[in-house]
């Protein structure tokens, strides 16, 4: 640390400033927003057309993402997870309907839970209930401040009959829903007619239950070691225990991802803390530097400024040594 002390202050300050400028410039070029988790804001921009449920819709590639760090869930039994470190989130709205797109890396596509030893990949977004007066606990909410969770499961893509494709069944005694007891009892996970997304509400650990209205839609796609999933729901929630959105206002949003091949399910998941979800009235901003000329100029300017800064820093270091 002796050497550092001898570097002139102007050189170190200048170098640091240049480094920060360099990082900021690079991040701007990369169209990313990795703000610290406490201040992380996901902006839902006004889309010019309906993005639909296709995770590969062209609109998404023009939408700035937020990189949300995930950690293992350690707050309650069943604790665990943590194998998915980060999720890239984007949000849009069109015609008073919110669209949230999550993307994460997962080298194993666990699209089915057709055997006792298999678990499916899944993802969820969580919002405060409309009735919540403040930010609820990200861990399943609390008694006076509930949360609304939309969960997508990859096994909804699979067909249980695939496992039994070769099986021979003469007849089942009855195919009446009454005898499919879980389905008859109203368990949405047991109903093949239920879409891939569950609309759930919770007010504490262990209270997670299907909402009375199942109006959340979603679709997932897997390619090149990545899942991308789109969730969508109209702004207006059907009841007070569900999330509600208004253009020009903010609410909160949290993410969870389950990695089936790691045995993730229930509390064993990778989770984020709450981010601010800003439902903006503005259109998707054109990414800066999308014009190649601007991009080239910006890169050139950065190189000049950055190079100058590093040069100055080195010069300062050498001068400091000489004066010692």
């Amino acid at each position: 640390m002796l050497i550092l002390r001898r570097i002139p202050r102007w050189a170190t300050t200048g170098g640091a400033l240049v480094a920060v400028l360099l990082c900021a410039g690079l991040l701007q070029l990369a169209n990313a927003n990795p703000a610290a988790s406490q201040t992380l804001t996901l902006t839902a921009w006004q889309a010019s057309e309906d993005p639909g449920l296709d995770p590969n819709h062209e609109l998404w590639s023009r939408t700035q993402f937020v990189q949300a760090p995930l950690t293992a869930q350690a707050g309650s039994y069943a604790a665990g997870g943590g194998s998915i470190p980060v999720v890239w989130a984007r949000a849009l709205h069109y015609n008073n309907t919110l669209y949230v797109r999550l993307e994460w890396e997962d080298s194993t596509q666990d699209g089915s839970a057709l055997k006792v030893e298999q678990f499916a990949d899944a993802a969820a977004v969580e919002f405060p209930a409309k009735s919540a007066t403040s930010v609820p606990s990200v861990c399943m909410g609390q008694a006076d401040m509930g949360v609304n969770i939309w969960q997508w499961r990859a096994d909804s893509l699979g067909n249980p009959n695939e496992l039994y494709a070769n099986s021979v069944v003469d007849t089942y005694p009855s195919t009446d829903d009454l005898f499919y007891t879980a389905r008859a009892a109203g368990n949405p996970y047991a109903n093949p007619k239920q879409g891939p997304v569950q609309n759930l509400v919770a007010v504490a650990f262990g209270t997670l239950s299907p909402a009375a209205t199942q109006d959340v839609q979603g679709q997932g796609a897997y390619s090149n070691g990545r899942w991308s999933v789109v969730f969508s729901r109209p702004f207006t929630g059907a009841s007070e225990d569900l999330a509600a959105f208004t253009a020009g206002t903010s609410t909160d949003i949290a993410f969870a991802v389950w990695n089936g091949s790691e045995g993730d399910r229930n509390g064993r998941k990778s989770v984020s803390s709450f981010l601010t979800l800003n439902v903006s009235g503005a259109a998707i901003p054109e990414p800066e530097g999308s014009d190649w000329l601007v991009l080239a100029l910006a890169a050139g300017a950065l190189l000049v400024i950055g190079g100058g800064g590093i040069g100055l820093g080195l010069y300062g270091l050498r001068e400091g040594k000489r004066s010692a």
């Binding site: 069943a78 006792v116 879980a182 009892a185 109203g186 368990n187 996970y189 399910r265 229930n266």
Partner: peptide
Amino acid sequence: DEERCHGYRF
């Protein structure tokens, strides 16, 4: 309770 079970298999 088959209404509440989510098939987690714990």
